[in-house]
Structures are given as C-alpha cells and as structure tokens.
Simulated assay, not measured.
Amino acid sequence: MNYYMPVKVFSENNCVPVHSADLAALGSCALIVTGRSSSKKNGSLDDVKAALEAEGIGYTVFDEVEENPSVETIMKARDIGISCDADFVVGVGGGSPLDAAKAIAVMIKNADSTWELLFDSSASPENIPIAAVPTTCGTGSEVTGISVITRHDLRTKMSMAHKVFPDIALCDGKYLLGAPMRVIANTAVDALGHMIESYINSAATPFSRMFVDTGLKLWSSCRGYLSGEEKLTEKAAADLLCASTFGGMAIAHTGTSVPHGLSYTLTYEGGIPHGAAVGLFQSGYLRLADVADRSHILSLAGFESTESLARFIAKISPVQADRELLEKAAENLLRNTKKLASCPYKADREALYDIIGGVICSG
C-alpha cells in the first residue's frame, strides 16, 4: 500500500492573512484565478489580495471562471498569466476555480504547447506553483491532483491526464457563512459522494478509508444545518469544509467512481449542478455494494437505509432529470472503462440501469 498527498494544509480561522508568508513564498507575481462574484461577496478575494500586498507580491486577477470550466477559459487565463509574468497561481473559490487553477498552472509553464497537452497521457508536464483557497464544502480540490475540465468538442467533462496538486491549501470555514444554502447543500452532497465513492472503490485502502471515516463523522454532525433545521454556525462551517477536505484526501488516492461518471452527462446535457447530479446516484451505488461496507457508511453518515439517504439528498439537493437523460448518462458511462473499473462490483448495463432506476427526482 502507499498513500501520497503532498499538499501543505492550513486549516484555521483567518487562515489567509495568518499564512501570508507561505503564500508569498510561492513566487513573485501571482495570477489569482476565481469566479465572477462569490469570492468577492464572501471576502476571500479581498483576503488573498491583502495578504499578497502585505508581502509585497504583485498580482493579476482573472475572474472569468465559469461553473465547470472549459478548455477555452483555461487557455484565455493562460495567455493573461503569461502576459503578466505570473510565476504562481492562486485558485480562490469552489471546485471550478481550483480545478481551473491547476490546468492554468500547467499551461503557463508550457507556454508553447496547445491545450491538447492537458489530455496527453504520454506527456509529463511541469507546472508553476499553486495555492488553493476553497470557499465551498464539496470538491476537496485543494488536496487532490485532479482537474476536471469541460470539453465542448466532445460535449462532456474530462479529467486532466496529469496529477497536479496545489503546493498549499488555505482552508477557512468563514467563507461558507454567506453562501446560499443551495450552494452549501449541493457542494456538501458532492463531498458525501467523494467519501462514498472512495470507500466503495476498487482502489480503496486502509489509508483512504481512514479519511472517509473521519470525514463522514464530521459531515453527519452537520446534517441539521444542511436540512435547514439549524442555522449554520462558524463551527459547523469549519466542520463541513474539513469534511470536504477529508473527502478530497480520500479521492486523491482512489479517484471517484460510477456516480461521478453518470453525473457528467446530467451536468453537460441537462445543466444540473455537479453536486446535485452526483448525489442523485449515491443511494443506488451504495445499495449494490457489499453489505458490510454499506452498513458501515450508512452508520457513520447517520442513515438507517439507502432509502433514507436518497430522501435526505433529494430534500436538500433536488434534481429534475427525465428518463431519457438518465439512460443517456448510463449509455455514455458504459464507454468509460476506466471509471467502471473503479467500482468493486460488476458495473455492467444491468447494474447501471438498476442505479438510475431508483433515483428520486423532484420533477
């Protein structure tokens, strides 16, 4: 067995200003990669800018990362990064800016290459340093080498072929406090999916499952906040972000499995948010798993059955998806042999249709 997760993680209140020196140690000019609005509203962008200014580090802000970032956006940011002589990247936001930051860091380092480099498994490109500042509680991208990018030419989402880990992660739960509950719920469901899919995985080991066990306990302790029965507190926000980070540590080792593979079609073709799309298939995926593993996960997450899990996810992260879209997702996944191989039980057409047949949609 082996486990590799090279990110230096700082997790505390006011994390960014406290560790400004660690941020500045990455280079002399930063390209800050973020979305259009959320990082401005929650204060994370201002914190990063102030930390860099305090250390005398120049920066340029690229704030055009869309949900499910595209190859085209990566290349636009790459060109801006090159023009401003950026020698490190700071990703600020949810999974989309963090994933984009990784791909941008590769393309800045390899300025003469085309975007195809991102998906060339025969290459071993280097990248400029990366800092990650997560502001949602779902992807765990701050501690993974994974970067999922939208390929409009193929009408789907694909993982970059190269493992690119951030050098440091600055994790502060306070950035969740002003987020819409639908964003918190959708991303928290994504984190739950990471933990379930990492535990029920052909590549699972005691190391990866250790992170799942701890992450699920934290996630379960926040269920009242996710359901809207309790108001989100600073502690709960920190616990949700920490659970997401543990989920990221788990999939850094195993990768995701069938539910994520099914979700890509729903996101690209149906415009369904990633976390909500992933959550739609968790109950069915878990229902077909080994009995002992299924019972263990349900117990830690605080559910009596896969049915109660499905109802909870449908309540906090509702999805509208028709049968045609679900079947298209299954047929598309049947062509993804790598993703199917990550499932520890036989993930054939019958199994996939069993999983999609039990989903709970809101309409």
Rank of each mutant, 00 (worst) to 15 (best):
E12N: 05
N13T: 15
N13V: 14
N13Q: 15
N14D: 14
P17V: 04
V18C: 10
A21G: 08
A21L: 11
L23D: 07
A25Q: 13
A25H: 13
L26V: 07
L26S: 08
G27Q: 10
G27C: 07
G27P: 10
S28G: 13
S28Y: 08
S28K: 14
C29N: 13
A30R: 02
A30T: 05
L31M: 07
I32H: 06
V33N: 05
V33L: 14
R36E: 06
R36V: 04
S37Q: 04
S37D: 01
S38I: 05
S38K: 03
S39E: 10
K40M: 01
G43M: 02
L45W: 08
L45M: 07
D46W: 02
D47Y: 04
V48R: 12
K49H: 00
A50D: 13
L52F: 07
G56A: 04
I57L: 12
G58I: 00
G58K: 11
Y59A: 03
T60G: 00
T60P: 00
V61P: 07
F62E: 04
V65C: 00
V65A: 01
E66K: 02
E67D: 14
N68Q: 04
S70K: 04
S70Y: 00
V71L: 06
E72Y: 05
I74D: 00
K76E: 13
D79I: 05
D79M: 07
D79R: 12
D79C: 06
D79V: 02
G81R: 12
S83W: 03
C84V: 14
D85Y: 12
A86F: 10
V90T: 03
V90M: 03
G91W: 08
V92Y: 13
G93H: 10
G93V: 10
G95S: 14
G95Q: 11
G95F: 03
L98I: 15
A101I: 00
K102N: 12
K102F: 07
A103L: 10
V106N: 09
M107N: 04
I108E: 03
I108A: 07
K109Q: 14
K109F: 05
N110Y: 01
A111E: 10
D112F: 09
D112K: 14
S113W: 02
S113N: 10
T114S: 15
E116P: 04
E116A: 14
L117T: 01
L118E: 03
F119D: 02
F119W: 06
S124K: 15
P125F: 03
